[in-house]
Simulated assay, not measured.
Amino acid sequence: MLLRLPGVYRPQHDTQLLADVLAAEPLGPHSRVLDLCAGTGALSVCAAAAGADRVTAVDVSRRAAISIRLNALVGGHRIRVIHGDLIEKVREERFDVVVSNPPYVPALADAVPDRGPARAWDAGKNGRALLDRICCQAPDVLVAGGVLLLAQSSLSGVEKTLTMLEEQNMRVDIAATAEIPFGPVLVERRGMLERRGLIEVGQTREEIVVIRAVK
């Protein structure tokens, strides 16, 4: 059970799917893992529990940063926590694995919230406000042969993610998928998503995808 302050994203199906893929990576004492948009630090804890003793968790939310520190302390894990925007504060470092479960829900507007609960899921009209930036930035902090593990919804353009990473000379494949019922946010936005043609009329489930890209 992970601790979280109010407003911090609660780990759900996508987090577990990504954690399962991360657990299959050959992490060891010298593995350097970067968790972007870390939330409660669930994936950082997973990496540390799998044997990586050089884990860095980054989140733009101060409440998330506090939650990660609490969960690292409770679990007895050594996790470096950075309050910041994606790779901004680790540009000069290199990692063996970058893992991220960013906000990816299509929203009413392109402006990304800078506070409030919706900050944890709203990602612009096409759901790609964070995905596009991660595709461009993550390869810069990976070692040769390093791995990016990225979760997203099929509503947010999986093919675009694959194409962007391939353009960064990454070897890309789909590591895992799961079909899950719409959560409260997508249920509320179903009409908007139907009007935009992002879902079929009456659709009630979405596909979550974990992309694995090797530098």
Rank of each mutant, 00 (worst) to 15 (best):
R128G: 06
H30M: 14
A129E: 07
G84P: 03
A23T: 08
Q12S: 13
L165Y: 00
Q203F: 03
N126K: 07
M1H: 14
V60E: 10
R62E: 15
V97T: 08
A178T: 09
E25G: 05
P6D: 10
A50M: 15
E206D: 04
R115L: 08
V209S: 02
V172W: 01
R190Y: 05
L193D: 10
I79V: 15
K125C: 12
A19M: 03
V187C: 09
L150E: 05
P29W: 11
D110Y: 10
R63G: 15
V98C: 08
L198Q: 07
G124D: 07
E88Q: 13
E207V: 11
E188Y: 09
V45M: 09
L22W: 02
A123T: 01
E93P: 02
A111T: 13
M164V: 08
S61D: 10
D140Y: 01
I180D: 00
P6N: 13
S154Q: 08
I79F: 05
T15V: 05
G127P: 01
E188D: 13
V55M: 06
S61W: 04
L165D: 02
L165K: 01
A175E: 04
E207F: 03
E159S: 10
A109L: 09
Q12A: 13
L149R: 01
L155Y: 06
A38P: 00
D110T: 12
P184W: 12
V141I: 11
R196K: 11
T161P: 01
E25N: 10
V141C: 11
V60Y: 10
A19S: 07
L36F: 05
P102W: 06
R119E: 14
T15R: 00
A52L: 02
R133P: 02
D122M: 04
V90E: 09
H30F: 15
R133V: 10
D14W: 08
